[in-house]
Amino acid sequence: MDLQIALLLGQDGVTNGAIYALLALALVLVFAVTRVIFIPQGEFVAFGALTLASLQAGKLPGTVWLLLAMGTVIALIEGATAVRAHRFRRLPLILLLNCGAPLLLAASLLAVSPAGLPLPLQVLLTLMLVVPLAPMLYRLAYQPVAEASVLALLIVSVAVHVTLTGLGLVFFGAEGSRTPAFTDVSFEVGDAVLHGQTVLVIVASILLIVALYFFFERTLYGKALRATAMNRTGARLMGISGDLAGLLSFTLAGAIGAFSGVLISPITTIYYDSGFLIGLKGFVGAIIGGLASYPLAAAGAVLVGLLEAYSSFWASAFKEVIVFTLIIPVLLWRSLKTRHVEEA
């Protein structure tokens, strides 16, 4: 390996690592607030990438049907609850949020041809289609069992993951998609070439991480999420309900997932089931951070990206093996280092 290859691999590793870092942060957030290990995080990456690809190919992305279906089911459930409690004034809002907004989005997709829109608008449409699925999933799959054990919530996550992967196959087919690069610019750095897309991914990831930091440190809603993670009872007594915190953290995780998908789709070909492995690598990063520390999780995820890039050069057949084996020494080290606390 000469320096040029090393730089190239490093560039690859950091790019993927930045995406894994975003996913790791989302996983830590969702786990800290709701105790859910959000395996379907990866599906949001795939849905984000494939929805954007569908829009660019001039097709109606299948996610729109999922949005409409889940919105309708939620409207029925919430509507029935409101009627039983005689709170009829809530009905219009419930309908508007869960049925009206998705319908409007579907109609506008049919009215304008998204393929001809500029890229930022296509990305915006993608996010509008995919991100709401996350809080809807929380409402349908997790909220009814929010008080269950971590293991039960994990099982729900597996079920949601399998369902979404299957739906992904139905919506997008078995062929993979790759979107054109956002930019063709490239820089010469010494001997190596730095691709504009790489820079874009890294810069966008850093910006998103900074935005998340400000959200958690400077806004009351961000603080409310941290408060829920620290002390659920204390937070409830302040009027921060577990449902609100769950919906909010899932929305953030969905946004991070979909946005990661949009960022990564010009770099790798994404298939309907590619999300799982990508999410799992974010998960390894999150584990390095003990599912609790945001900076450690992000650093761990970048490490995963680098390890993956270099092992693909030396032992490409064992690339995934090497990455996932990383979890064993990390867990050993963590279990030796930390005092074990039984889950209450």
């Binding site: 009351l220 603080k223 941290r226 408060a227 620290m230 204390g234 302040m238 921060i240």
Partner: peptide, 16 residues
């Protein structure tokens, strides 16, 4: 909220 400042704890009291 043990890992937050006194001021943040107070602000969260007004969350609702």
């Amino acid at each position: 909220f043990a890992d937050m400042s006194v001021a943040d704890n107070l602000l969260l009291g007004a969350f609702d």
